[in-house]
Amino acid sequence: MTSLSVKKLTCGYGDKVVLNNISFEVESGTFLGIVGPNGCGKTTLLKAIGGIIKSDGVEISEKNRNLFSLAEIAREIAYVPQLLEPIDGLKVKDLVMLGRSPHQKRLSVESDEDNKIADWAMERLKVKGIKDMQSASISGGEFQRVSIARALAQQTNLLLLDEPTSHLDIRHQIGIIKILAELEITVVAAFHDLNLAARFCQKILLMKKGEIKAIGKPEDILTAENIWDVYKIKAEVNKKSGHIKLLP
């Protein structure tokens, strides 16, 4: 089934057009990595799908996203911003529990189910051990995982992440992308590291100046030719391992 389809999406900020006539589809359960140089529109695309930028042309489970109510769409799509501001006085488990809010009724207290799902989300992201710590006092890598656990607790079919691995050391980068690859739901995430994306994503969407350069399996998309075309960097791709060696 198609989890997400983008049809002739054109949008931007004010008069400035950032995305120009973009169309693609993502099958349910796919891990799609969006790559491309700075300013090519990765964040804008994620924001348009997430509804942070208003647009027409995004379909969720074959229904136009503008036809969902705010609460309904919050149960379909969860969004992880590039950098969440740490909040003083908010414990890890409380931050994750905020992800349950689209499922909660007003004035109701957390149900057993809410607690169970928040626990499950923290377990998946390996932050259950620090659930009682202050979210503002943990490390950057841990905080990013907590931020993703918050989105996972939202229990959606589609998870959007804006460069979840930037600002992190290589160990945390791999840790997070591995967890994302293991998720059963559809994941669409922007990445900078081509090798990480090639190794863990099922599909790659390569962007260039607000348009789609190519979409498909990593080995078909991340070729020396495409990399040169988009980044103007020479690269060597090892046919056997798929490893991309950049030759600046």
Binding site: G51, L70, A74, E85, I87, L90, S101, P102, Q104
Partner: peptide, 24 residues
């Protein structure tokens, strides 16, 4: 005020994120 305590909690996460979590 109490009726909107859920929204006040979600707003802590910032406008963009709160908007994706069902808060107008």
């Amino acid at each position: 005020a109490y009726f909107y305590s859920k929204e006040l909690n979600v707003l802590m996460l910032g406008d963009d994120l709160a908007g994706t979590m069902g808060v107008d």
